[in-house]
Amino acid sequence: MIDFKDSRFIITDKKNTSKVHKSIQGMLNDGERVVEFYVADRYPVPSDILFTSKRIIICTYEEPEFPIFTFLPYSKFIAFSVKNSNDSSLENELELYNYYVNKIAFEFPGKFDLSLVIKLIGGAVN
């Protein structure tokens, strides 16, 4: 399970959305699609981070045959902040805040364009 007291994910790789596992595809709501697909190196186990058109899906693999899924709807976030640099030597960061888990953060080392993710979240946060 995700420890939301230490909810920082360090993104290590971006994957093609066509590589999303079938079990995750089956969990998408009608009209929902995977927009961005990342891999995070998070102690003690790696995670897949999917930004869909409606929510963030985090899949952790403590036991490969029994992945744990966490769903974070964009509409439940009350605020967010972004540090998005065009310099590949700097990190990019996305922090999301809500009433239930306080803060969840994603670090994107190197050059990542977060504009699509920012649009998705910005459209849902009131």
Rank of each mutant, 00 (worst) to 15 (best):
R55A: 02
I49G: 00
D48R: 00
E93F: 06
K54I: 04
V45I: 10
V82M: 08
F77I: 04
S89F: 12
S85A: 13
E93S: 14
T60V: 10
S89T: 13
P67L: 06
L90D: 08
Y38V: 03
F77Y: 08
P44N: 13
A40T: 09
E62I: 07
F51M: 05
F80T: 03
S81R: 14
E93N: 11
A40D: 00
P44L: 14
T52W: 00
F71K: 12
I49V: 15
N92G: 13
P44I: 06
S89G: 08
F37W: 03
I57K: 02
L50E: 00
F77H: 01
I58L: 09
F71R: 11
I56H: 01
P44E: 14
D87F: 11
I49K: 00
T60F: 00
I49E: 04
I58Y: 00
Y38M: 09
S47M: 08
S88C: 12
R55H: 05
P67F: 04
Y43K: 10
F71H: 11
N84M: 12
I78E: 15
T52V: 05
S88D: 07
S75D: 12
K83S: 15
Y43E: 14
P44T: 09
K83M: 14
K54M: 09
P67K: 05
D48G: 00
L94W: 02
N86L: 14
E93D: 13
Y74K: 02
L94N: 01
P44V: 06
T52S: 05
E93W: 05
S53A: 08
S89A: 14
P44G: 10
K54S: 06
P67C: 08
S88A: 15
F77M: 09
I56R: 00
P67V: 01
L94T: 04
V45Y: 07
S81F: 07
C59R: 08
A79R: 10
S53C: 08
I56L: 07
F77R: 01
Y61H: 10
F71Y: 13
D48I: 00
F51Y: 10
D41F: 05
P44S: 12
S85E: 05
I57V: 12
P44K: 06
K76S: 11
P64G: 06
I78P: 04
N86G: 15
Y61V: 09
Y74F: 15
V45M: 07
F37V: 01
I58T: 03
T60S: 06
L72T: 09
D87E: 11
P46Q: 04
R42D: 03
P67W: 02
E65L: 14
D41M: 06
I57S: 03
F71V: 09
E65W: 12
P46T: 07
E62N: 11
T60C: 06
D87K: 09
E63K: 14
A79Q: 15
N84W: 05
P67S: 07
F80P: 11
A79Y: 15
F66C: 10
P46F: 02
P64W: 09
F51L: 05
L50C: 04
E63L: 15
S47L: 06
D87L: 13
L94R: 03
K76C: 08
P73H: 15
